[in-house]
């Protein structure tokens, strides 16, 4: 199609391009509208709120300029929360991505019989109610839970998994991986659908084994969308909320406090004193900015490295 277009005169080409541009934007309208109204506007509001000294409860607020940000940069609990978010992400993401990809590939390309059943089974944690998950994890990881009973059988000392600052994060990560693998498995399954069945057959004829087929043929094809899935996995792990809120509430003593729980707690609940929606907004906006900045830095480094390689 593009080859055809280059053969015609430049005026016609420009006209065609303009037409395509218009069509493209017409196609973008619904998505952009839904974005602007229900994500763009709330984000702009948050940026606006972050300049206010406001509890969120009253209809009057005081403009505070950059005071919230100034205070935020001296708040060690904010940086603790940011640190924990990254800790969670760094441990969680490799497991999430590899396990979910392995499962998706297994049930898409290797196993045919019973694949539907297995897919359903590995998807069930996604639809298991979080508050019930919290309770059952207490039975498993609690001080008197099954894991400790098992350790006891081997003569090891019981560990207070959720109750100690050192281990709570590990438990939360394990449960997080368990609960989310199903979601990413679905995404990978979708990505694998752009690999044509013919390619598997061709690979088999060429005598490639399973691993070679996967690494040499399938992986390169799903790489572009794989990158998006990975970025999404990173971002949603950084924003983890529900699970931590239910399981540890950020405790014990901020050991599992992540950015989202920090923001939520600051915005809504407090024992003494009024909640601080303005301050919470500034924390949310700053956290977003940190991730974006890291993304840009990462991209730049990647760009420089790939340039060097080609030189």
């Amino acid at each position: 199609m593009k080859a055809k277009a280059s053969g015609t005169t430049s005026v016609l080409k420009r006209q065609r391009l303009r037409k395509i541009n218009i069509w493209c934007w017409v196609f973008m309208i619904p998505a952009v509208l839904l974005y602007v109204l229900f994500l763009g506007y709330p984000i702009l509001s948050s940026v606006f709120y972050s300049t206010l000294d406001w509890s969120g409860m009253t209809s009057n607020a005081v403009f505070a300029g950059l005071d919230n940000f100034r205070e935020l940069f001296g708040d060690k609990y904010f940086f603790n929360a940011v640190g924990n978010s990254f800790k969670y992400m760094v441990i969680c993401v490799p497991f999430l991505l590899t396990i979910s990809l392995a499962l998706a590939y297994l049930f898409n390309s290797i196993i045919k019989k019973g694949a539907a059943v297995f897919r359903t089974v590995f998807f069930m944690p996604v639809v298991t109610t979080t508050s019930i998950v919290g309770i059952i994890m207490m039975f498993i990881f609690g001080g008197t839970g099954s894991v400790n009973q098992m350790l006891g059988l081997f003569g090891m000392k019981p560990v207070n998994w959720l109750g100690s600052g050192d281990y709570a994060m590990i438990v939360v990560v394990i449960v997080g991986v368990w609960k989310d693998v199903g979601t990413y498995m679905i995404y990978w399954l979708a990505a694998l659908q752009s690999v044509s069945q013919d390619l598997y057959e061709a690979a088999m004829i060429d005598g490639a084994n399973r691993w070679q087929t996967f690494s040499k043929i399938v992986l390169p094809i799903i790489m572009p969308i794989g990158g998006t899935i990975a970025i999404l996995c990173i971002i949603s792990s950084l924003k983890v909320f529900d699970l931590i809120q239910t399981m540890t509430n950020g405790g014990p003593f901020f050991a599992t406090d992540v950015a989202a729980t920090f923001v939520y707690r600051t915005a809504y609940s407090s024992a003494t004193g009024t909640p601080r929606l303005g301050y919470a907004s500034s924390a949310a906006v700053t956290f977003g900015a940190i991730i974006v900045a890291m993304g840009i830095i990462g991209n730049t480094i990647k760009g420089i490295l790939s340039k060097r390689r080609t030189v």
Binding site: S45, F48, Y49, L52, D53, W54, S59, N60, A61, V62, F63, A64
Partner: peptide, 11 residues
């Protein structure tokens, strides 16, 4: 954005 804002001095 659902809030009336005043400056610090006003309030």
């Amino acid at each position: 954005c659902g809030v009336n804002v005043s400056s610090k001095e006003d309030s």
